[in-house]
């Protein structure tokens, strides 16, 4: 028998061990979605698609601005000392992923704005010649390709940091995996691709995005497997953390909503669509988006539930 009785009353930590509510998972999900969209936008720009042409890369920056603003709104709501948020931008703390994230967001917004500006039809910008010239310039081959490269780099940085943010918090064993950053990036890519292939007007782009999403979903499965293997073969605390998803309280929600409905079912449907056995449908995209949100909620919530098993 080993029983601990404690007299402390720390409602932010005990008894739930939860410090982050719905705001952080929502931000991580929306940030990942924007990251994925930026990488896909960058890919199409580098493939020679012009922002002003009929391409999904024309729409994604606008949606990215809206989604990122909503996500940052959620992030702001989570802060307990809201009036001091500007302190984030008076310093750079290299050991703190949240500091990296704050500055990455500063990089991401202008890239999204440039992408959005380039997609505006020239006649709408006639009153602002300088802006019109910039938009026209961004539609020329070398500038568009360069914008694509920057978009890919900023998107990868945004997607990966959200995972590293959690994995750097060593007190929560479930997050102690270097694969969490790549998992969140690939999940963001998958969400971005699922949404993009629904709104894509160009048949060729739609086909490319659908096949890419299948690859992202399969990669997600591999990364989830690697994370669980890594935890199960580490210390007792890490194995117990993996147990939360393998028989513990988060098992059903993880395997049903994240893996089953969020990855396997849409992957199966999209494979049938890709092989032209069934017509294109919005259903798998909705499932992938829901699965991406469920992944963030389960990982953030179960991670906070996990703890070191020690004296």
């Amino acid at each position: 028998m080993f029983e601990i009785v404690t007299t402390r009353a720390n409602p932010m930590v005990d008894p739930s061990l939860h410090v982050w509510g719905w705001e952080i998972p929502v931000y991580l999900f929306l940030g990942g979605w924007v990251a994925g969209s930026m990488v896909l936008t960058g890919y199409f720009l580098r493939q020679g698609r012009r922002p002003g042409a009929t391409s999904v890369s024309r729409v994604l920056p606008w949606i990215g601005i809206v989604l990122l603003s909503l996500g940052m709104g959620a992030l702001f709501l989570d802060l307990e000392h809201k009036l001091y948020v500007w302190r984030l931008y008076l310093t750079f703390q290299p050991s703190a992923p949240m500091s990296w994230g704050g500055w990455i967001l500063i990089l991401v917004y202008p890239v999204l704005l440039l992408g959005a500006l380039a997609s505006v039809p020239p006649d709408l910008l006639a009153r602002w010649p300088a802006v019109a010239r910039l938009a026209a310039r961004l539609n020329e081959a070398p500038a568009a390709a360069r914008l694509g490269t920057v978009s890919i780099v900023a998107g990868i940085a945004l997607g990966v940091y959200t995972g590293i943010l959690l994995s750097s918090l060593g007190a929560r064993p479930l997050w102690a995996s270097a694969a969490l950053g790549p998992l969140f990036l690939v999940s963001g890519l998958s969400t971005g691709a699922a949404f993009a292939h629904v709104i894509a007007g160009d048949a060729q782009e739609q086909s490319t995005l659908l096949r890419a999403d299948n690859l992202f979903l399969a990669t997600e499965l591999v990364l989830i497997g690697l994370i669980l293997i890594g935890l199960l073969t580490a210390s007792a605390s890490h194995a117990a953390a993996a147990g939360l998803l393998l028989g513990g309280p988060y098992t059903a929600v993880f395997w049903v909503f994240v893996v089953g409905l969020g990855i396997l079912l849409p992957l199966a449907i999209q494979l049938l669509v890709a092989s032209h056995r069934i017509p294109h449908t919005v259903v798998p995209a909705l499932l992938v988006i829901g699965g991406g949100l469920a992944l963030r909620f389960v990982i953030v919530s179960a991670g906070q539930y996990s703890h070191w098993i020690s004296q």
């Binding site: 720390n10 409602p11 932010m12 930590v13 005990d14 061990l17 410090v19 982050w20 989570d78 802060l79 307990e80 000392h81 809201k82 001091y84 948020v85 302190r87 984030l88 703190a96 949240m98 943010l165 750097s168 918090l169 060593g170 007190a171 929560r172 906070q304 703890h307 070191w308």
Partner: peptide, 26 residues
């Protein structure tokens, strides 16, 4: 206290649960 934005990363990082959010936000 004047630099803390109340992000709670430190609460999540502490294995001892030694920290809490003061009602004033830090």
């Amino acid at each position: 206290h004047d630099k803390c934005i109340g992000c709670k990363a430190c609460l999540a990082a502490c294995p001892y649960g030694a920290r809490f959010v003061h009602p004033d936000g830090y």
